[in-house]
């Protein structure tokens, strides 16, 4: 299987701080991968390694079947990148900037560019320096996708978008995967959006991969049980190993669990209670993924 990128034993240190600590990761294509993690968990550093902008202290990073630090023009023109800190050329108009960047790529799609300008409601006559943070992000996204990239790397691409534009962008990203069979790596704290598009989730914590699983698998793995006792009061505290968090109040309880079907049956048998299983969304799941107490 061809991988969009492969990482083996990646370690990156900045002086005494270890930003990435033995990362192993492989992402196939096409797919949309959500890169999650708390502030300072190493997401941006990881992304910069994928782009070949940073060099590992240990380990290897392969992007589009080539060591990322040795990526050549021929490979880089198949990658789209929206960095976290967007600083474009302030003195150009949006139109001038688009024309300028279009010359970097042999397969620039003007049709897609116009479609996105309209969908994201970006005025191409404005000077880049006058754009709001949100509009700057829109331009950065357009610049990153109009050359039909095989790999699109988005580092916090929607943080300044309004909900309507966010929705349109997410639709477009899905379309991009369908049309171009691209792989998209998106790092974001807006987890509801991530959840709408990703099929795979990678979660970093303190420079280590703590979760590397499909979204469906995670949804099956974690859930919330709402419990009503059918036989008197519930115990003050549940001690089952799969219970990750709990809130007990008389005959009712709310448990966050890492579950399996067998666990449900065993729990029913042990506590004589009615259980309603509710799936967790990614935002509710996030503290579990980074091993924090969800309560």
């Amino acid at each position: 299987m061809a991988y969009a990128f492969e990482i083996h034993g990646l370690t990156k240190r900045f002086d005494t701080v270890t930003a990435l600590d033995g990362i192993d990761l492989r992402v196939g294509r096409p797919s949309i991968v959500g890169l999650l993690g708390r502030n300072g968990s190493g997401k941006t550093t990881l992304i910069q390694h994928l782009m070949g902008l940073q060099l590992p202290n240990e380990g290897t990073v392969t992007t589009l079947a080539r060591p990322s630090h040795a990526l050549r023009h021929d490979e880089l023109i198949h990658i789209g990148y929206v960095p976290q800190e967007i600083r474009l050329l302030d003195w150009m108009t949006v139109e001038q900037h688009l024309r300028y960047v279009s010359c970097f790529y042999p397969a620039w799609d003007t049709g897609r560019e116009q479609k996105l300008l309209a969908a994201l409601e970006l005025d191409s006559t404005k000077t880049v320096g006058t754009l709001s943070a949100g509009n700057l992000q829109k331009l950065a996204v357009i610049l990153a996708v109009c050359h039909h990239p095989d790999l699109l790397v988005l580092d916090e691409p929607v943080s300044d978008f309004d909900p309507i534009v966010r929705g349109r962008l997410l639709e477009f990203l899905l379309e991009l995967v369908r049309e171009d069979e691209a792989t998209i790596l998106v790092s974001s704290h807006v987890l509801r959006d991530v959840e709408r598009i990703v099929d795979w989730v990678v979660c970093l914590d303190k420079g280590r991969v703590v979760t590397d699983a499909s979204l469906d698998e995670l949804k099956e793995r974690y859930s919330e049980w709402r419990i009503v006792s059918t036989d008197g009061a519930l115990p003050a505290r549940f001690s089952e190993p799969y219970v990750l968090a709990q809130e007990v109040s008389g005959r009712q309880a709310r448990l966050v669990v890492r579950q399996s079907a067998a666990d449900v049956a065993a729990f029913r048998a042990a506590h004589a209670a009615e259980i309603t299983v509710h799936p967790l969304n990614l935002e509710e799941m996030f503290p579990l993924l980074v091993r924090e107490d969800p309560s």
């Binding site: 300028y100 010359c103 000077t127 320096g129 006058t130």
Partner: peptide, 23 residues
């Protein structure tokens, strides 16, 4: 200041006219 200055003025740079730059 830089942002304000940019916001107050129209783009004055020269336009770029070239095709694909290549390797």
């Amino acid at each position: 200041y830089e942002r304000q200055k940019q916001a107050q003025r129209r783009a004055q740079g020269t336009a770029w006219r070239a095709g694909y730059l290549g390797p």
